[in-house]
Amino acid sequence: MSETAHSGRLAAITIEDLAVRFRVPHERYASLKEFAIRWVQGRLTYVDFWALREVGFEVGWGEIFGVVGPNGAGKTTLLKAIAGVLHPTRGRVVVRGERAPLLELGAGFHPELTGRENVYLYGTLLGNTRRELQARFESIVDFAEMWEFIDAPLRTYSTGMTTRLAFAVATSRLAPVLLVDEVLAVGDVRFQDRCRARMDEFRRDGACIVVVSHDPALVAGLCQRALWLEAGGVRALGPSAEVVGQYVAASG
């Protein structure tokens, strides 16, 4: 039970002894034939890459939880395990509520389709029904400020516009568990402010938010608690100011 969890209620996210292993063939078996020969000969060898090992923590409801660490520390892998994209190799991930994953924003957008068509395509990719998207369509386009271009093909959009639309779709439903991967770094200052405002909305609603970022200042300012990941393992876990301070000092 996390110290920040509401009393009598289980934590929003429970991670127990989580390990994620990517198994890469030692030599690259590009062809089935080569693989078959090696397999018969019993000479298949793998390199195990543990992207995460023995990671455990809990995140309570209404909490903003930060994850910091250098490139390749396993931050995105952790988010993907929480999002259900990667099934744990060992250990356990429990998420007690619907998830809104803000990672890989806009994955699945199709450049030839219009903004409107992409709202429905991307929205259903994130698990919404068509009816839900129809009901929320106006507010999505309002938030993205996209009325002028909504019927133009996506390939004519700027990167910023594409991200705005993706963010608007991904946050159109107030899910109790929000997973955020570096999205705040995109868009202009005004849009970043509105992203933060929307995340506050989620939190006031009692949502649990996990933020992954390279930016120590952002994590220290936004989050109550934080986790410092290094080479797939936990280096520190605790109040965000402390953890971020240690992280900055160590990488200084």
């Binding site: 395990a81 259900g84 099934h87 744990p88 250990g91 356990r92 991930v93 429990v94 998420v95 007690r96 509520g97 619907e98 998830r99």
Partner: peptide, 9 residues
Amino acid sequence: TGVYDSARR
């Protein structure tokens, strides 16, 4: 119930 539990899929 909306709970994702990787150990009880």
